Computed example of a mutant assay.
Amino acid sequence: MNHRAISRLAFFFWLSFLLFTFLQPVQASDLETYEVSTSILNVRSEPSSDSEIVAQFVQGNELMAFQEKYGWIQTYYDGEEVWVAKHHLVQKDSLSTENSTTETSSTPNMVTINSESIFVRSGPGTNYDAVSSALSGDSFDVIDRSGDWYQIMINSSETGWIASWLTEQATQPSQNNNNTVPSNSMNLEGYNIVVDPGHGGTDPGAIGLNGIQEKDVIQPTSSKVIDHLRDAGANVIVTRSGDYFVFLDDRARISNSYYTDAFISLHYDASLNLSASGVTTYFAESGDKGLGESIQSSIISQVNLHDRGVRQANYKVLVNTSAPSVLLELGFISNPHDLSVVQSESYQNEVAQGITNGLINYFE
Score class of each variant (00 low, 15 high):
residue 127 N to Q: 15
residue 129 D to L: 14
residue 129 D to A: 14
residue 131 V to P: 05
residue 132 S to R: 01
residue 132 S to E: 08
residue 133 S to E: 04
residue 133 S to M: 09
residue 135 L to A: 15
residue 135 L to F: 10
residue 136 S to Q: 15
residue 136 S to K: 15
residue 137 G to M: 04
residue 138 D to H: 15
residue 138 D to G: 01
residue 139 S to H: 07
residue 141 D to P: 00
residue 146 S to N: 12
residue 149 W to P: 00
residue 149 W to Q: 00
residue 149 W to E: 03
residue 152 I to W: 12
residue 153 M to A: 13
residue 155 N to V: 04
residue 155 N to G: 10
residue 156 S to C: 04
residue 158 E to L: 14
residue 158 E to R: 15
residue 158 E to M: 13
residue 159 T to E: 13
residue 160 G to K: 02
residue 161 W to P: 00
residue 162 I to Q: 10
residue 162 I to A: 05
residue 163 A to G: 10
residue 163 A to I: 05
residue 164 S to I: 07
residue 165 W to G: 00
residue 166 L to M: 08
residue 166 L to H: 14
residue 168 E to I: 07
residue 168 E to V: 09
residue 168 E to K: 13
residue 169 Q to P: 07
residue 169 Q to Y: 05
residue 170 A to F: 08
residue 170 A to T: 06
residue 170 A to E: 01
residue 173 P to R: 06
residue 174 S to L: 00
residue 177 N to R: 13
residue 178 N to M: 04
residue 178 N to V: 08
residue 179 N to Y: 14
residue 179 N to A: 13
residue 179 N to R: 11
residue 179 N to F: 13
residue 180 T to I: 11
residue 181 V to K: 03
residue 181 V to I: 11
residue 182 P to Q: 04
residue 184 N to K: 07
residue 185 S to W: 11
residue 185 S to P: 06
residue 186 M to E: 13
residue 186 M to V: 05
residue 188 L to W: 04
residue 189 E to A: 13
residue 189 E to F: 08
residue 190 G to D: 07
residue 190 G to C: 01
residue 193 I to T: 08
residue 193 I to K: 09
residue 194 V to K: 00
residue 194 V to Q: 03
residue 195 V to F: 01
residue 196 D to K: 10
residue 196 D to P: 10
residue 196 D to R: 10
residue 197 P to D: 10
residue 197 P to R: 10
residue 197 P to C: 03
residue 198 G to I: 02
residue 198 G to W: 01
residue 198 G to A: 02
residue 198 G to Y: 04
residue 199 H to C: 05
residue 202 T to A: 12
residue 202 T to M: 05
residue 205 G to C: 02
residue 205 G to A: 07
residue 206 A to I: 08
residue 206 A to N: 11
residue 206 A to H: 09
residue 207 I to W: 02
residue 208 G to Q: 04
residue 209 L to H: 01
residue 210 N to K: 09
residue 211 G to S: 02
residue 213 Q to K: 15
residue 214 E to N: 07
residue 216 D to L: 02
residue 216 D to Y: 11
residue 216 D to G: 01
residue 216 D to C: 00
residue 217 V to G: 08
residue 217 V to T: 13
residue 217 V to D: 04
residue 217 V to N: 10
residue 217 V to H: 09
residue 218 I to F: 04
residue 220 P to K: 04
residue 221 T to P: 02
residue 221 T to H: 03
residue 221 T to R: 01
residue 223 S to Y: 06
residue 224 K to A: 14
residue 224 K to Y: 13
residue 225 V to L: 10
residue 225 V to A: 03
residue 226 I to C: 05
residue 226 I to D: 04
residue 226 I to K: 08
residue 226 I to H: 02
residue 227 D to Y: 03
residue 229 L to R: 02
residue 230 R to D: 03
residue 230 R to E: 14
residue 232 A to K: 05
residue 233 G to M: 01
residue 235 N to L: 08
residue 236 V to Q: 07
residue 236 V to W: 04
residue 237 I to E: 00
residue 238 V to Q: 11
residue 239 T to C: 02
residue 242 G to T: 12
residue 243 D to K: 12
residue 243 D to Q: 11
residue 243 D to E: 10
residue 245 F to P: 02
residue 247 F to I: 08
residue 247 F to E: 15
residue 248 L to K: 08
residue 250 D to C: 06
residue 250 D to F: 01
residue 251 R to K: 15
residue 251 R to Q: 14
residue 252 A to G: 07
